[in-house]
Design a protein around this nucleic acid. Structure first.
Lengths: 248, 248
DNA sequence: CGTTCGGTTGATCATCGTCAAGCAGTGTGG
DNA sequence: CCACACTGCTTGACGATGATCAACCGAACG
């Protein structure tokens, strides 16, 4: 039952030397989480956790009581890359109800020892995550509240659509306005104003955990949305060292 | 002459199976760059570039003409981790005059094939960079202009002090106010006002590319500065999978 | 000697945050 | 069945933070 895991890692680079079979045969423990529950606390030991269903957030609590959401995880995403070798510096929380599949710490260790190429694939996954993070940084630093919000909605919709989890311009987004605020570095009330403007302009609505994109063209234009940032590998991958990890 | 490279990578985890000797013997090409010059353009092929002298920034130019600086590199930092397997999504530019040592693409490839543990070390370096990035994200999203600025100055000073590149509260920072602004997501003029307030309060001054920290206590308090974020490995490293990369 | 670049200052304005209050939906206990 | 509380959305008034515009100054440089 690990086809999801294989498919997920496959996006980051070809799996070689039998690691695909090993992954497919690996024993995955399934865990479920309620909305808001902590899936992985800061400092926790890393396993290899894959989000199978639902949405999750990677979030840090700041000393002054504020929260900053660093990333959003959709089904197929690995949840504890940040804690791969070192202690994780942030929490992972379920946004809506979630289902998580976990490879045990021991089995991951064994697989990494037997299949060096697995590390290259995980490394690429980390690099992809870092690239998405940089996109969020540019949003936080240099875009207006409306553009930031639009960009987030576009990203959420796009990623779920890539997984066939969206149709008719609709997808799940079990988040309240304060969650959006914590992701975008804005106040809850201002998010309300922005969302209201988006709704009044017929661009998008968020109600009862359901995101409805009514005018993708105008929304993505407002967001200056670039799907390329989200792709696991960029177009230069075939040049130079790109395939290196797969060849080792 | 690659002791710097060995020392740099050593911070991220023990180098095993002869890779240390191989690195020490590797042929490093030295390049020098003038202030503002592009060291590595977005999309460029990855080698293994190490900043030997000077300060560099990792920066993206946004479609609307704005810039966002994602990270600062001090001597000993690797410059092209983001382009390790995929095309790099941002530029690396010299802030002041820089000296860079580069391992050739071919030699890096050969070393990675011969020494699997090198990849684990690079992977940790990437994870560390991502953690520093998240700290910047939290700054951008949830801190005031003054706290953000103070935090950046603290980080710059702290990292150079760790390398014995600072003394008497002074270190190099060959940046103009608009550079600081692009790092913090603020306007140049507002940076001026914040810097002026810091100066008037006797906390820190920046003049002629020289950063002078006059009151570290109050500055780091204002910044809520946490040096732990900058450390290559965190305190949990010895638990669980932490040493795994070194063991493979 | 003019030009450019970076720092400086002030005035003005927009964006966004804070405070306060009301409202609708939901669940709970009497 | 009805308070009651609770949570999240909504609205408005107000204020602070930070952006924009414009001008000036000093130093470096050709």
């Amino acid at each position: 039952m690990s086809r999801l895991l294989v498919a997920s890692l496959d996006r980051f680079g070809p799996l070689r030397d039998g690691v695909r079979e090993r992954l497919a045969a690996s024993c995955l423990k399934t865990e479920t989480f309620e909305p808001g529950q902590v899936i992985l606390a800061a400092g926790g030991r890393s396993k290899l956790r894959l989000l199978a269903r639902g949405l999750a957030i990677k979030v840090a609590s700041l000393p002054d009581g504020g929260r900053q959401i660093f990333a959003l995880a959709v089904p197929g995403d690995l949840l504890d890359l940040a804690g791969l070798f070192v202690g994780c510096d942030h929490d992972v929380r379920a946004l809506g109800p979630c289902e998580v599949r976990a490879v045990s710490s021991g089995e991951l260790k064994a697989m990494l020892q037997d299949h060096p190429s697995l590390l290259a694939v995980l490394c690429r996954a980390v690099l992809t995550e870092a690239r998405v993070q940089r996109n969020w940084m540019a949003s936080l630093g240099r875009r207006s509240a409306a553009a930031r919000t639009a960009n987030l909605l576009c990203e959420i919709y796009w990623r779920q659509k890539s997984l066939a989890l969206a149709k008719d311009g609709q997808c799940a987004l079990p988040a309240v306005q304060s969650d959006i605020a914590d992701a975008l570095g804005l106040s809850t009330i201002h998010i309300h104003r922005v969302m209201r403007a988006l709704r009044d302009d017929g661009l998008a609505t968020l109600r009862n955990g359901l995101l409805h994109i009514q005018d993708w063209e105008r929304l993505s234009a407002l967001a200056a949305f670039d799907p390329g940032v989200l792709r696991p590998q960029c177009e230069h991958e075939s040049a130079g060292l790109a395939r290196l990890g797969a060849e080792t």
